[in-house]
Every structure is written in structure tokens, then in C-alpha cells.
């Protein structure tokens, strides 16, 4: 189980980074989405994995619980990463509509004309 989670985080990170390095806005946004998954799962996993130990206090009897703190942190992180993605999308959209191109790099016009 641990291996599956760790490898999933690794694969999501790798995919996210690869897309992040593309040259157009949309793949970069997708890359950030993948990276957000990876980071969220990574943070969540730092509380260690547990099955059937939800951090909901049992009314009766003794029970053991998983670590609730990373969950609380990740919960807000998920919502905030949505906000961030939305801002990025808007900026990307604005840039595309203003410049009529969705490239993320500034073209080196001086070099182009000089060469």
C-alpha cells in the first residue's frame, strides 16, 4: 500500500513537472493541477497511512485514530489550490485574449530581428 501511494505521488509529480515545462498556458495549468494532487497526497501521507481509522471520535469504547492534523491542512490546501488554479486560468485566458497567443515565454524579439 505504502509503495502504491508513494509511487502515485512520484508519477503525479513527474507528470506535473513535465507539463509545467511545456510552452503553452493550458498544459502548464494541467501540470499545476497534477502537481496539486501530488502535493496534497504527499502532505496527507505525512500523517502515515491508516485504514478504517477515521478521525471521527467513537461514542463508545476505545478506538485508535489516524493523524487528523495533515487532513485539516490538506483540506484547506485543496480549496486554496482551486482558488489558485482559477486565478491562473483567468490570467492565462487574459494573456491569450490580449496577445492572441498562449505561449508562456516572452519571445526575444531583439534576437529575432538581429539574427
Amino acid at each position: 500500500m505504502e509503495f502504491l501511494v508513494a509511487s502515485a505521488v512520484g508519477v503525479l509529480t513527474a507528470g506535473g513537472v513535465y507539463l509545467l515545462l511545456r510552452l503553452r498556458t493550458f498544459p502548464v495549468i494541467l501540470g499545476i493541477a497534477l502537481l496539486s494532487y501530488a502535493v496534497n497526497v504527499f502532505l496527507f501521507a505525512s500523517g502515515r497511512l491508516a485504514i478504517d481509522k477515521s478521525p471521527i471520535l467513537a461514542k463508545y469504547g476505545e478506538a485508535s485514530y489516524t493523524d487528523p492534523l495533515p487532513q485539516a491542512l490538506v483540506l484547506t490546501a485543496i480549496v486554496i489550490s482551486f482558488g489558485m488554479t482559477a486565478v491562473l486560468v483567468m490570467i492565462g485566458l487574459g494573456a491569450y485574449l490580449e496577445a492572441d497567443s498562449d505561449r508562456i515565454d516572452i519571445e526575444d524579439t531583439e534576437e529575432d530581428t538581429g539574427a
Binding site: 501511494v5 505521488v9 512520484g10 508519477v11 509529480t13 513527474a14 507528470g15 506535473g16 513535465y18 501521507a45
Partner: peptide, 19 residues
């Protein structure tokens, strides 16, 4: 791809180590 793979291996390895 190479950069991404290295980053993925690093993060995945770290996660596996602490898990």
C-alpha cells in the same frame, strides 16, 4: 522528461521513506 523523472523519483522516494 529527464527533469520530471528525477523530480518524481525524488518526491516519490521521500514519500516512501517516511511512510
Amino acid at each position: 522528461g529527464a527533469i520530471a523523472t528525477v523530480a518524481g523519483l525524488g518526491v516519490g522516494g521521500l514519500a516512501y521513506a517516511f511512510l
